[in-house]
Nucleic acid binder design. Structure first.
Lengths: 144, 144
DNA sequence: TTACTTGCAAACGTTTTGCACGATT
DNA sequence: AATCGTGCAAAACGTTTGCAAGTAA
C-alpha cells in the first residue's frame, strides 16, 4: 500500500501558530509525514538530514515538541521506552505496532467511550486523556 | 480507604527466581507495595532509604528492573514521561491517574477483549500485549 | 526591521557499567 | 565456600539551555 501524506496541512497548521516555514522544519515534517513507523529523535535527525544537511539535533527536539503541541504527532509508548513519535495527522488515533518490524497501523476505538463513561461514573474521576496501544506480530512477521 | 499489601507474595516470587532477600530489596519492595501513587526511581530511593539507610540508587534501578521482569510492578506512562512504576501485584490491570495529585486507581477492562479480537481480525495482527491508561482529575482535585 | 529560528557548545539529569567489597544461602 | 548482591565512582546517554549568528516575514 502506498499513500501520499498531505504535508501542506502540516505547514498550514504551523503557520496558524505563527511558526516560520524553515528548511529545517520542512525536512522534519516531510520525514515524519512519510514514515511508516514511529521514529526516535535521532532517527528523525538521520533521515531528515538527507533532505536538509545542516539540520541540528537540537532543532529536531524543538520541532518535535512543537508538532506534539499542535497534535500533529503523538508519542509512541513501547516497553523499551516512550521516546518515539508518529504522525497523527488524522486526529487522535489508536496504534497497533508490530514488535518485530515496527510497522504501525491505526485502528478505531469507538467502543471505548462507553467504557470511559462507566469508569468515570464508578471512580468519580473526570477523564481527560486516554491512550490505548496494542502490540504484537503483523501478518508478515507471524509467518517467519 | 486503607489497605495492607501482602509483601510476602513479593518475597516468595523473588525467591522462586532464586533472588536473595536482602535489606535493600526488602526496602524497595515495602516502599512500592505500600505506595498509593506511581513512583520514579528517585522517589523510591528517597522513600526506601527511610527504611534502609545504606541503599544506593543503583540498587533501586536494578531492583526495579527485576520486579518489572517478574511482573510485580508495571511502568506508568504519562505525558511527561514514562519512568514511574506502580505495584502490579494483582496481575495486569488498567490505570486511571489523577493529573493533579497522582492518585492512582485500577479499573476493569472486560469489554476490551471483544475490541482486540475485532482489531486482530481486521489487521491480520496477532495481538500480544495491550496498554490502556486514562488520566484526568480525581473527585477531590475536581473540586479545587 | 523585527521577531523568530538555528546550530553550536556546554550543562544537566537520568541510567548504565566496572569493580572490589560484603552478604546470603 | 560459592554465588549473588551491593555501593561507589565514573562513564554513557538522551535531552535541555544559553547564546550569538542567521533567516523568514
Amino acid at each position: 500500500m502506498v499513500f501520499i501524506m498531505d504535508t501542506q496541512f502540516w505547514f498550514d497548521t504551523l503557520e496558524k501558530d505563527s511558526c516560520r516555514l524553515t528548511g529545517a522544519r520542512r525536512a522534519v515534517v516531510e520525514t515524519i509525514a512519510h514514515a511508516h513507523t514511529s521514529l526516535t529523535p535521532l532517527e528523525v535527525y538521520d533521515l531528515a538530514r538527507q533532505i536538509y544537511r545542516h539540520l541540528g539535533l537540537v532543532t529536531v527536539y524543538r520541532t518535535l515538541e512543537k508538532l506534539e503541541e499542535l497534535r500533529l504527532i503523538q508519542r509512541v509508548h513501547q516497553p523499551g521506552g516512550c521516546n518515539a513519535y508518529i504522525s497523527n495527522a488524522n486526529g487522535h488515533q489508536h496504534l497497533l505496532i508490530c514488535e518485530s518490524c515496527g510497522t504501525s497501523v491505526y485502528f478505531e476505538g469507538d467502543d471505548l467511550v462507553a467504557l470511559f463513561d462507566k469508569v468515570a461514573c464508578q471512580t468519580g474521576f473526570e477523564i481527560k486523556e486516554h491512550w490505548l496501544q496494542l502490540s504484537g506480530l503483523c501478518s508478515k512477521c507471524k509467518k517467519s
